[in-house]
Amino acid sequence: MLEVNSLSAYYGLFQALFDVDLRVEEGECISLIGANGAGKTTLMRALVGALKVDSASVLFEGQPVGGQSERQQLARGVTLVPEGRRLFPSLTVRENIELAQHHGRPGKWDAELLFQELPALAEVQNRMSTELSGGQQQLVAISRALVTNPRLLLCDEISLGLSPYAVDEVYRLLNRARKDGMSVVLVEQNVQRALAEADRFYCIQKGRVVLDGPAADADHHAVANAYFGV
């Protein structure tokens, strides 16, 4: 479904990614593991179109899509849940979700279905997003991505700073959405969790993929080495 071939990305003169190769199959969940500043977020931004990269370095269903705009990627079904949630503080919860729904792909997920699935959110739908707890805000952020009906959902640090209970709730929503065959790329600080949720994993270190394989038989020692770069 998604194929990344020797992708390099730059911020001005600074090179953040070096020849990254990666592949996501239909319905698959993969985890990107790596220390802060390894280039995980950069990779996500490149996939979603927020960062200009070489056209042929990102293939979606065989089509070169690298460097295309966020809107074009959204129309294809590639959506990002950005790090830090980034809800719009001037918009209510419902407005946050409906704005994305309006610009996204038509499909099963819409605001009404989400409020059915998440009654707690339905209760606060007319509040400003800043009034919500961190866990609720993260649920809104994921909902905002789901209502665009993505085929590939990119999740950047969706459990950061949340209570264990809130994290479980966030992943419950994510797994509920995965049942329809949606593919997911996870960036997760908690390596245990990252490996538990994913089918396969990639370790990224200083802008390069240093280790990858099926999550089930990941050698924790090797992953730790790749993570810390020892």
């Binding site: 809107r71 719009f88 001037s90 704005l99």
Partner: peptide, 23 residues
């Protein structure tokens, strides 16, 4: 209005507004 919501979203955070498909 819905258009107004898009306007407020861009005013809040242009980068994220682009992510949710606002032109």
């Amino acid at each position: 209005s819905p258009v107004g919501a898009a306007v407020r979203a861009v005013a809040d955070d242009q980068e994220t507004a682009r992510l949710v498909g606002v032109n």
